Structure formats: structure tokens, C-alpha cells
Simulated scan of single mutants.
Amino acid sequence: MSMVVPGIKPLISQALRVRGRSCYSVQAGREFKANTIHDIHEKYCRGAPLSMCTAYDYITANWVHDSNCDMLLVGDSLSMTSLGYESTTDLPFEEFKYHLRSVCRARGPALIVADMPYGSFEASLEQGISNSIEVMKLSSRVTSLKFEVGLHTKDQYTLNLVRELTSRGIPVVGHIGLTPQKVHSLGGYKVQGNKSLNEMIELQETAMMLQKAGCWSLVLECVPHKLAQYLTSQLSIPTIGIGAGSGTSGQVLVISDLLGMQGSNVPKFVKQYTNLHEEAVRAIKGYNAEVQEKNFPNQDLHTFKIKESLWKNFMEEIEDQPRH
């Protein structure tokens, strides 16, 4: 780990103060202790790898919490993985907030980071600040926001917005490299920082600028392993990689990818740990077959009983009623 960049410690400390304090009077009696930015930073300083996974609703959030992931990302990838849109840029802000509320109803230790979806912050700094505050106020469990940021030579606006937010005490995770919200300007879903020396240098400069702007962590997406490892060594904040190799401070994957919720077609950088799509289809086919064969429901296992005396009384009462 490199020496801490001058000026970054106060910025990190500011972020820790905002969402990292313990409110014992309101948390007493809970069965879990939610991770704070301070907890994540301490683990990073020990050199322990950090884990992050996306979740999009109450059920998947419970899975992430119960698996003891360090962090949970409510990503705008839910647009394509859960809602059927063709791109993350199609996701309406209101729908995103609906899913964020659902995730926050699940209780567990993972620190919750919320994406700021496309269209929620680009119109003006005033809009970006207002919507950021609105997202933070949706639930006290939202600990940080995440912003996709282009190279500093092309995206000064988002860099300035990050500065404005962190100066107001709002914790921010930066996201550089492949930024799906800017996929059209990038020319598609492509690896970043592997074509030219200038692009590599600009990516490195952008990372350092985001750290200076107050980001407490950076997501590096689809960046060559060597470059991601170098950036991690130069920064004094944790990096979370996705398609960026093992040299980052931690990893993040989309839950539907790692669980195979949409079949076996996943990006190269994903390891699929199971195939829930195949398991679900197999289970539903089994259910369908048993219904057709009248093997479900089982009379002894799946039905409710009634006392014979009560049933006898009911039948007698029915039989005594006049027929129409």
C-alpha cells in the first residue's frame, strides 16, 4: 500500500463521521451490526480482501446479508437483469427507488451502496445534489452513493458533482473504466485502458482526482489486470474490481450472473457458482408434472384436516337445507 495522499485522510474521516457513527439508543436489541465505512476501511488497511454483491429486492438482499458479504450494491444493472430493459440507461429513477426501498427492508450486516442511475444527476449540479439527498433519505441503511465517472478530460461535470457531494458529507464511491451509462460514448461494452498510453494515463489521473475529490472507494470495471493492480497500489482508498483481475482491494459481481439466474450466458470475467435458472426450470417442471399426474398435493402432507364429527354435522346441516 502506498503512502496516504496528502489531504485524503480528512476526506475519509469526513465520510466516516457521516454514516459511520453508532446510534446505540436506536440500534439496541438488533440481531446484527451493519458494516460502516470505517469497518470497510479498517479491513482494507489490514489487507483483507473485500466482497461486494448486487441485490435488487428483499429476497436477494437477504441472500447477500446471510452470506456475510462486506457490501451490497443496489446497482442500476437491475434494469437489464430484473426488469427486462435493454440498457441501464432505460431505468426510470422512480423504479430504481422502489427497488432500493425493497432492498433496505432486509436486515443484515452488509454496507449498502446505491447507484445513481442515468438521468438522475446529469441535468445540473442542483438536480444531482437534490436527487442524491433524496436517495440517501430513502432509508438510513443507504450508506453511500456510487457514480459512474468518465475520463477527467471528457467528464469534468461528474467529477465536480462528486466534489460537491463529499463537501456536503455525502459518502461517494467512484466508478471508472467501463461505465455502462456512457456506453455510447465508449463505443460499446469494451475493456478500458488497453488501447493507448494516453488512455491509460487519463484513467490513472481520473482515479487520483476522484480520490482527491473525496471518494472513499473506487469501482474499477473491465480494466486490464496490471493497470488495475497499479492503480490500487497508488491509491489510499479501496478499489473494488469487476473484470479487473485479482490485484484490486476487493471484488463485486452481479448477483444474477454469479448465481446463473438467467442461464449460462455471462461475461468473461464472471465465475458462475451455480445455475439457478436451470434449477428453477427443473423444479417448476417437476411441479407441473405432479399436478398433471395428480401427485400434488399429497393428501397426507399438503392438506388440512377437519374433525369427522364436525364434518358430519356440516353434511347433516346441508342435507336439511331446502333445495332450490
Rank of each mutant, 00 (worst) to 15 (best):
108 G>A: 11
185 S>H: 03
33 K>W: 00
191 V>D: 01
156 Q>W: 07
23 C>H: 09
226 K>I: 09
155 D>T: 12
205 E>G: 03
174 G>C: 07
165 L>V: 06
238 P>L: 07
170 I>G: 04
194 N>A: 13
46 R>Q: 15
276 L>R: 03
261 M>E: 12
78 L>Q: 11
173 V>W: 08
292 Q>A: 09
44 Y>Q: 01
10 P>D: 06
115 D>R: 04
99 H>L: 05
320 D>E: 09
304 F>K: 14
269 F>D: 04
274 T>Q: 04
21 R>L: 11
245 G>H: 15
8 I>G: 00
195 K>G: 02
205 E>A: 04
101 R>F: 02
174 G>R: 11
95 E>M: 10
165 L>I: 01
183 V>Q: 08
146 K>Y: 12
271 K>L: 05
214 G>F: 04
281 V>Q: 15
171 P>I: 09
308 E>G: 13
284 I>W: 10
288 N>Q: 12
1 M>W: 05
96 F>T: 10
270 V>T: 11
141 R>W: 03
157 Y>V: 01
132 S>L: 05
139 S>Q: 06
206 T>Q: 11
159 L>P: 00
124 S>V: 15
1 M>P: 15
239 T>K: 10
313 N>F: 09
126 E>C: 01
127 Q>I: 13
275 N>T: 10
48 A>N: 03
37 I>D: 00
153 T>Q: 06
259 L>W: 02
47 G>W: 07
312 K>F: 14
12 I>Y: 01
161 L>G: 09
283 A>C: 12
314 F>M: 12
48 A>C: 02
55 A>Q: 02
